[in-house]
Amino acid sequence: MIGAIRALVARDLVLAARVGGSGALSLVFFLMIVALVPFALGPDLNLLSRIGPAILWLAAVLATLIGLDRLFQADEEDGSLDLMAGAPVPLECMVLAKVTAHWLTTGLPLALASPLFGLLVALDGTAMAGTALTLLVGTPALTFVGAVGAALTASIRRGGLILAVLVLPLMIPTLIFGVSAAQSVAGGTVPFGTPLMILGGLSLIAAVVGTVAAAAALRWSE
């Protein structure tokens, strides 16, 4: 079973690295949103550094949506989803493997690149580290919640827009606690630990609920 999961993760990583994969694209999109914000708000560095964590988090939420609609759709179209559903390994494991691979190509690069992009919005060192840490802890929740929407819309042609409408309201708690944890690093009334622990809890809940619900959605869509 572990072997099957590992093989599936490796396959998805290879697919994401190839031409037409969405691995690097979401990173570029992330950079794009961060670069757009100063044009909308003006290049005031004080203002930007105050709302910097919020910008990075918002950009991360939107960048997670990139490529999410193809998470199961590509496999549904070429029939490999049927093979996975018919495999002796439970479908939940397959979903877990695919979501992990998606997070490795979207969420993890975003978290790792966020200190670099933090420079653009004038974050200082501790705020940068804090934002990167919260993104590292929080982006799995975004990916798992998104996976439910991806599984529900796998068989719908042009499901990208409806996917965003379905999953964005469910991502609000993650956004709230991610931003407040990142901002509490820079000083505030709340200690850093509390929202970070809740964020970790949200990721774990999303991992369980998201895996089960996405597998159920794929199984029942036939």
């Binding site: 309201p169 469910l170 609000i172 809940i205 609920v209 959605a217 029942w220």
Partner: peptide, 21 residues
């Protein structure tokens, strides 16, 4: 069936949303 899954995921999420808001 699809909407049922979404509704239940939303139902699990609503207390969390209420708490976080």
């Amino acid at each position: 069936r699809a909407v049922a899954i979404l509704t239940l995921v939303g139902a699990i999420n609503l207390p969390i949303i209420k708490f976080s808001v």
